[in-house]
Write a protein that binds this DNA or RNA. Structure first.
Length: 203
DNA sequence: CGGATTTGACCAGCGC
DNA sequence: GCGCTGGTCAAATCCG
């Protein structure tokens, strides 16, 4: 019994250390991410006339939960890394908007299928492509194409931004809402994936 | 029953 | 010109 307790304590200690390290990593990545976004913002201000949608999209990325990890933006396309579950074969990424899937393809360079979505808001030209990452199957690469000409979808008018992005795309079986928000050890663990991934693409 | 998803077919762009 | 590949369409199917 004592040995069991001891074992658990060692385990706990290990986790605590890991926790500290992860916190540090998370800080570094957050700062990097912020810097890159500020950079993009300032660049956009220079050459942008009607960038309302883009700004709201950017805002969306900033406030989104850990599920949306990293955004690399080029003119009208935004690439982001999102965490998903292996079970989530539909490649549904909750980002606060309502999407309609219109196609799916298996591409040459990545055998996991790429899903094509259109924003289901009438008149909104935004499209996105979602494909599971090659290196990390629990991550998906989301490529946004274009800018939303509207705010987050009304369907989630009531809930706060965080949960709204959880329930974004309407009909897919959503991940348990709490997954990204509450369970601390869980999110730390996931942030490890996030940081590693972010680092991969930043460094 | 209406809206969302699936999936095979089709089309356009690109490299050879 | 041809074949390959990514992107889109649209009919069929599913689901609430």
């Amino acid at each position: 019994m004592d040995s069991k307790v001891e074992c658990l304590q060692t385990e706990l200690e290990k986790l605590r250390k890991e926790n500290e390290a992860l916190k540090l990593m998370l800080k570094v990545v957050s700062i990097k991410n912020l810097v890159s976004q500020v950079d993009v913002c300032s660049r956009d201000h220079r050459h942008d006339q009607n960038d309302e949608g883009s700004r709201s999209e950017r805002a969306n990325l900033k406030v989104s939960p850990p599920a949306l990890a990293l955004a690399l933006e080029t003119s009208s396309t935004t690439q982001a890394y999102a965490r998903t579950t292996f079970k989530d074969q539909a490649l549904m990424v909750k980002d606060g908007y309502k999407w309609r899937k219109y196609g799916q393809k298996i591409t040459k360079d990545n055998q996991s299928p790429r899903a094509y979505f259109k924003c289901s808001s009438p008149g909104c030209p935004v499209k996105k492509k979602v494909q599971r990452s090659l290196e990390n199957k629990s991550m998906v690469i989301v490529t946004y194409d274009g800018h939303h000409n509207h705010n987050h979808n009304h369907e989630n008018a009531s809930p706060p931004p965080l949960s709204s992005s959880q329930r974004g795309s309407s009909s897919s079986p959503p991940l348990p809402v709490e997954t990204n928000r509450v369970a601390l050890p869980m999110s730390l663990n996931l942030d490890l994936t996030l940081s590693r991934h972010a680092d991969d693409h930043k460094l």
